[in-house]
Each structure stands twice: as structure tokens, then as C-alpha cells.
């Protein structure tokens, strides 16, 4: 019997499959696209290709598209799944997990190995991965390039609007004024870090135990800026992008 976790986010869908010993035997990221049900079927066919047919696994779905995965045995929210996955990945019981996702940013307080409290942004996309993507598009670069550009900034500028739409016009006016691209990029990444900082205020956290999960954990400059703003090193892990799916797979292994 295998245990499968699927984290269907607004931008990417992550899948983790475990064996009986709860070791990861397969993982992947695919774009969610516009049709969640179709994406779920694609993932199912990939599992089969890996020798994990439909009747040989139990599964838990999470993420905003969790209800669109017809073969999932159970749906659990991404808060609980990220918490559980991160506890396993970082192998420690008490820390604050920051997850910058496609359409929302979550700050999750972990105590004694389980979720104690969390804060999640409301409906707007301010401070999320989507915000970074849109801003990168405005500057004509991709997300990783945007963050690397930011590192080269000599004269920091700040983007004061948190609203994606307003921030975009702010960026456009900076471009119009001839501001250096690297300086604008810095302002964009910094605004994400500031937003996370204000969200951190809503839960109690220890600067000595900060961890990042989600798609942006592979962006070193964001980690550096976050660490600087939050007053403590923000650590991550190559697996952290899969935290939600990993947690879901672990929940699946506990299903009766």
C-alpha cells in the first residue's frame, strides 16, 4: 500500500507518494492550469506510470483545489498539511512556518509538533507568489531573475502599495522615471518581506526558529531579506516546496 498526498495550489500542484515505511518514493510538481479535475487525472496517470495504480494507494488532498480531486479519500486543509509536512521535513517540534503560496501567504505556529495557531491573508493577493509573478512580468523578467536582480540593487527604493494592482502602477511609474531595474526589483522583494513581517505579528514566533515552505523557498535572495526583516535566520529545505503534499501523504498513511 502506498500513501499519496496531493497539494493542488493555485499555481502548481505538488504530489508526494510514500511507501509502507513512509519513505518518499515519488514526488513531482506540475502546473495546476485552469482545470483542476484534468490536472488530477494527469497526476493519476503519472502515478500509474510509476507503478502505483489507483487501487494501490490511499490519498489525502489539500490546497485550494482539494475538493476537485475525485479519487482522494479525504480533504484536509493546507494549514494542517503544511504543518505536518514541515514537522517531518525540519524534524523539530517548535517553530514558525512561513508559506508563501500562489494566492495566499500563511504563517503557522507549530508547538509540540502540531499546528497551534495560524494567520492567513484575506482575499487579496498582496504579498503572495502571485504578486511577485505579476511584478516580474511588469519588469519583463522571470521570478528567479527578479530576485537575483534585487540583490544587485545599489539604491534601494521602496514600493509602498501592497495592493497588486496599485503596486503595478507604482512600478510602472518608477520605470517611467528611469529608476534602475535592480532597485525596483529590490523594492518588490522587500515589500513581500514587509508583508510577511506584519503577518508574523498576528501569531507568536521565536526569531530563532523560522522556516519557509512553498514555491519561493528556492529563491535565496528572498530568504536573505526575510531573515533580515524578521531578525532571525529563515531556514528552508529542498523538500520544503512539497511540505503540503508530504503532510497530506503522512495524513493518508494514518487513515483508517
Amino acid at each position: 500500500m502506498n500513501f499519496v498526498g496531493i497539494d493542488m495550489g493555485s499555481t502548481c500542484s505538488k504530489l508526494v507518494a510514500l511507501n509502507e515505511a513512509k519513505e518518499i518514493v515519488y514526488k513531482e510538481v506540475v502546473p495546476t492550469g485552469w482545470n483542476c479535475v484534468e490536472t488530477a487525472e494527469t497526476l493519476l496517470s503519472h502515478l500509474e506510470a510509476q507503478g502505483i495504480p489507483k487501487d494501490a494507494f490511499r490519498s489525502v488532498a489539500t490546497g485550494y483545489g482539494r475538493v476537485s480531486i475525485p479519487f482522494a479519500d479525504k480533504c484536509i486543509t493546507e494549514i494542517s498539511c503544511h504543518g505536518k509536512g514541515a514537522v517531518a521535513i525540519f524534524d523539530e517540534p517548535d517553530f514558525t512556518l512561513i508559506d508563501i503560496g500562489g494566492q495566499d501567504t500563511k504563517v503557522i505556529e507549530i508547538k509540540g509538533g502540531s499546528v497551534k495557531n495560524f494567520y492567513m491573508n484575506d482575499k487579496c493577493s498582496a504579498g503572495t507568489g502571485r504578486f511577485l509573478e505579476i511584478m516580474a512580468g511588469t519588469l519583463g523578467v522571470d521570478l528567479n531573475k527578479l530576485c537575483e536582480l534585487g540583490r544587485q540593487s545599489q539604491n534601494h527604493v521602496s514600493i509602498s502599495s501592497m495592493c497588486t494592482v496599485f503596486a503595478e502602477s507604482e512600478v510602472i511609474s518608477l520605470i517611467g522615471r528611469g529608476t534602475d531595474k535592480a532597485d525596483i526589483a529590490y523594492g518588490i522583494v522587500e515589500s513581500i518581506a514587509n508583508k510577511v513581517k506584519s503577518q508574523m505579528g498576528r501569531v507568536s514566533s521565536d526569531p530563532a526558529h523560522l522556516r519557509l515552505s512553498g514555491g519561493l523557498c528556492e529563491v535565496p535572495f528572498l530568504l536573505e531579506l526575510l531573515s533580515e526583516k524578521l531578525g532571525g535566520e529563515v531556514k528552508t529545505d529542498p523538500l520544503a516546496r512539497y511540505a503540503g503534499a508530504y503532510g497530506a501523504a503522512l495524513f493518508a498513511s494514518e487513515l483508517k
Binding site: 485550494y64 484536509i76 486543509t77 493546507e78 494549514i79 494542517s80 495566499d104 502540531s114 499546528v115 497551534k116 495557531n117 495560524f118 492567513m120 484575506d122 482575499k123
Partner: peptide, 16 residues
């Protein structure tokens, strides 16, 4: 417009 997010937050709250 925030129905999905509210639902996730409430579900997560009850899970915890």
C-alpha cells in the same frame, strides 16, 4: 469573492 479562503481558514481552525 472570499468564500473559498474563509472556508479554508475555518476548516483549518477547526482541524487545529
Amino acid at each position: 469573492s472570499d468564500k473559498g479562503q474563509i472556508d479554508t481558514r475555518i476548516a483549518a481552525f477547526i482541524e487545529t
